[in-house]
Amino acid sequence: MSDVTVPYTRESLSEAPGGTVGDFIALMKPRVMSLVIFTALVGLVVAPGPLHPALAAIALLAIAVGAGASGALNMWYDADIDACMARTVGRPIPRGRVTPEEAFSFGMVLSIGSVLTLGVLVNWVAGALLALTIAFYVIVYTMWLKRRTPQNIVIGGAAGAFPPMIGWAAVTGGISIESILMFAIIFMWTPPHFWALALFRAGDYERAGVPMLPVVAGEKETRRQIVIYSALLVPLAVAPAFIGLGGIAYGIISTVLGAIFLSLALALWRADEEAKRIQIAKRLFGFSILYLFGLFAVLLVERLAAGLMN
Results as ranks from 00 to 15, higher is better:
M33G: 11
A16W: 14
R95G: 05
R147P: 10
K282E: 09
G49C: 10
S111E: 06
A208P: 13
S230M: 03
F183Q: 05
V234L: 00
V301T: 11
I63N: 01
S114N: 08
G22F: 06
R95T: 04
M143D: 04
V125P: 14
P50E: 13
L197H: 07
V256T: 03
V227R: 12
P240K: 02
W168I: 04
K146C: 00
I139M: 09
L41N: 03
T142W: 13
I81K: 11
L299F: 07
Y77P: 05
R147Q: 13
P53T: 07
A169S: 02
G174T: 08
I228Q: 07
I81L: 11
N310L: 14
M212T: 09
F162T: 04
L60Q: 03
V256A: 08
Q279G: 10
M108A: 07
R224A: 12
L61C: 09
A202L: 08
R207L: 10
A265F: 08
S105F: 12
A170Q: 08
Q151A: 14
S230I: 05
G68K: 11
R207D: 02
S254W: 00
A239S: 14
V120H: 13
I228T: 12
T142V: 12
R207N: 06
F296I: 04
E15R: 15
L233W: 05
L236T: 08
P7K: 12
H52K: 08
E102F: 09
F104K: 15
R277F: 03
G96Y: 04
I253N: 03
R303E: 14
V89P: 04
G246N: 00
R207S: 06
T5W: 11
A217Q: 15
V109M: 02
A62Y: 14
L299D: 03
P94D: 01
T222C: 08
M28T: 15
G66P: 10
G19N: 12
